[in-house]
């Protein structure tokens, strides 16, 4: 029998680690890439992810010491089972979670005044246009009718959504979000990435007693189930609950914090995600935070999250 490869989990989502520790996780590989594998949980159906240690923590994820999952022979359909403090993948690999640092989405501790946030958002948006990658919201990857139309539809959807959220028109906002779901190139279509940024920023910065009560966010998740693929859906569903990749959370916190730290390092980290995914997410973050100023929630949102 071929010896499996043992990998060490460096850190991981607290809930996922707890399930592995308690031998309460079994799944099947949904999709495998060089630097990430998605595991569909047989109990809840949610996607859980292993990522190589050059990537960051995220919801339902473990960061493991690996270079390339495909090189280990991991492929779609492989069974995954937790037991004895580790995760076994079809006799090909074992992920040992002992000593892995527990990660949870970082939360904003302070809110800056709305005027400062608005200035930061304007600076950040200019920086995204300067340094972002073409593909969805930024034209230039291919000079085709399809690319131009897609970009135009993305901007129309995003603009309409921002306006509707600003005036607290949940129905209109949902209609515009529906026009963004599944729209654009990439594994996670550009419109989905935008919504991840928007939903996460709104969820992380709204008053704690509003968490989970956002009808708009619930509506988007409901629509996304059939409007996009399972990988994009998983990210949207988590973002709607304020659970998002470490570097996206850090950008949201940097933009909204009362501290005087510059946001540009966090923005650079987000723009580096995927092909143009980071660019679309960053645009979503900007619009999500702006919507909270526009609808008056920002000035009432400060809570000590300790």
């Amino acid at each position: 029998m071929r010896a499996h490869t043992t990998m060490q989990a460096r850190s991981g989502d607290g809930a996922f680690l707890a399930r592995v520790n308690g031998a309460a996780f079994a799944g099947v590989i949904h999709s495998a890439f060089h630097r990430a594998v998605n595991i569909a949980c047989l109990c809840c159906g949610e996607l859980h992810t292993l990522v190589t240690d050059d990537l960051d923590d995220g919801p339902n994820s473990l960061v493991v010491s690996a270079d390339d999952f495909l090189a280990l022979g991991i492929c779609r359909g492989d069974s995954v089972r937790a037991g004895g403090g580790s995760l076994a993948i079809a006799g090909k690999a074992m992920v040992n979670i002992a000593g892995a640092a527990i990660w949870r989405t970082p939360l904003p501790e302070t809110h800056c005044p709305a005027g400062l946030l608005r200035r930061r958002l304007a600076e950040a948006e200019a920086a995204i246009w300067r340094n972002g990658k073409p593909g969805g919201f930024i034209e230039g990857m291919a000079d085709t009718e399809i690319a131009r139309l897609t970009t135009r539809m993305l901007h129309e959807g995003a603009d309409g959504l921002a306006l509707a959220l600003g005036r607290r028109d949940a129905d209109a906002a949902l209609a515009h979000a529906g026009r963004l779901l599944g729209l654009g190139p990439g594994l996670t279509p550009s419109g989905d990435d935008f919504l991840v940024g928007l939903l996460a920023s709104r969820a992380l910065c709204r008053r704690p007693d509003d968490l989970g009560s956002d009808a708009f966010a619930h509506g988007v998740v409901r629509l996304a189930k059939s409007a996009t693929n399972p990988i994009a859906y998983a990210a949207i569903a988590k973002a709607a609950r304020g659970e998002v990749r470490e570097r996206v959370a850090r950008l949201i916190i940097a933009l909204g914090s009362a501290a005087a730290e510059p946001f540009s390092p966090a923005l650079t980290q987000v723009l580096a995600i995927g092909s143009s995914s980071g660019t679309e997410i960053a645009f979503g973050v900007i619009r999500g935070l702006a919507s909270l100023i526009d609808n008056g929630e920002w000035d009432h949102g400060y809570q000590d999250r300790h």
Partner: peptide
């Protein structure tokens, strides 16, 4: 992965004689 999809999309549109090509997920939008 998205990087591969974008790369192939760019190269597909550069294939001689191709007017335009879409490589994307089969979503309604």
């Amino acid at each position: 992965d998205s990087v591969s999809l974008m790369s192939v999309t760019g190269r597909a549109n550069a294939v001689a004689g191709v007017d335009q090509a879409m490589i994307g997920m089969g979503t309604a939008m």
